Simulated assay, not measured.
Amino acid sequence: MAEIDARLAAIAERFAAQAGETAAEIGAALDREDWSELARLAHSLAGRAGMFGYGAIGNAARSVEEAVDSEFLTEAITRLTQNLLAQMAELNRA
């Protein structure tokens, strides 16, 4: 059991380390107003974040995905995405 816990911890650390790259991709999709790419990235992030104990990031990513899918106004999608990116930035500070 300890070996599994160690592997999961290593994967979670890798997730946190890759947060910067993922955030850059999300930011670029937002800048281009590429809603389908933004939704795809948010969907993928929501699943990975929740799996590795980053529930708040997973919830924020899910909110972005749902906003895009529901065709919210650009301002709302931008606000939700900026909130997500701020939470992801905290991973690198921790």
Score class of each variant (00 low, 15 high):
residue 64 V to A: 03
residue 94 A to L: 11
residue 54 Y to H: 15
residue 10 A to H: 05
residue 27 G to V: 04
residue 60 A to I: 07
residue 29 A to M: 05
residue 70 S to T: 08
residue 26 I to D: 00
residue 17 A to W: 01
residue 8 L to H: 12
residue 88 M to P: 04
residue 43 H to M: 01
residue 21 E to F: 04
residue 52 F to R: 07
residue 91 L to C: 07
residue 76 A to T: 11
residue 6 A to K: 13
residue 84 L to M: 07
residue 49 A to S: 09
residue 70 S to N: 12
residue 48 R to T: 13
residue 3 E to Y: 11
residue 28 A to G: 11
residue 36 S to Q: 10
residue 86 A to L: 12
residue 3 E to P: 10
residue 79 R to I: 01
residue 81 T to E: 00
residue 87 Q to N: 08
residue 62 R to H: 14
residue 83 N to M: 06
residue 24 A to D: 13
residue 31 D to E: 13
residue 18 Q to R: 15
residue 39 A to P: 10
residue 25 E to A: 14
residue 61 A to R: 03
residue 91 L to I: 02
residue 11 I to R: 13
residue 40 R to A: 06
residue 62 R to C: 06
residue 73 L to C: 10
residue 11 I to P: 11
residue 4 I to K: 15
residue 24 A to C: 02
residue 56 A to Q: 14
residue 23 A to K: 02
residue 61 A to Q: 04
residue 77 I to D: 01
residue 19 A to C: 02
residue 43 H to P: 10
residue 93 R to S: 13
residue 47 G to F: 03
residue 7 R to V: 09
residue 5 D to P: 05
residue 56 A to F: 05
residue 3 E to Q: 15
residue 17 A to G: 06
residue 66 E to Y: 09
residue 94 A to K: 12
residue 66 E to V: 04
residue 19 A to E: 01
residue 20 G to D: 07
residue 42 A to Q: 07
residue 89 A to H: 10
residue 60 A to E: 09
residue 6 A to C: 06
residue 20 G to C: 05
residue 77 I to G: 01
residue 62 R to W: 05
residue 86 A to E: 15
residue 12 A to M: 05
residue 87 Q to G: 14
residue 14 R to Y: 04
residue 23 A to L: 02
residue 92 N to Q: 15
residue 13 E to S: 13
residue 50 G to M: 08
residue 44 S to P: 09
residue 42 A to I: 02
residue 45 L to Y: 06
residue 94 A to T: 10
residue 43 H to E: 04
residue 45 L to I: 04
residue 40 R to H: 07
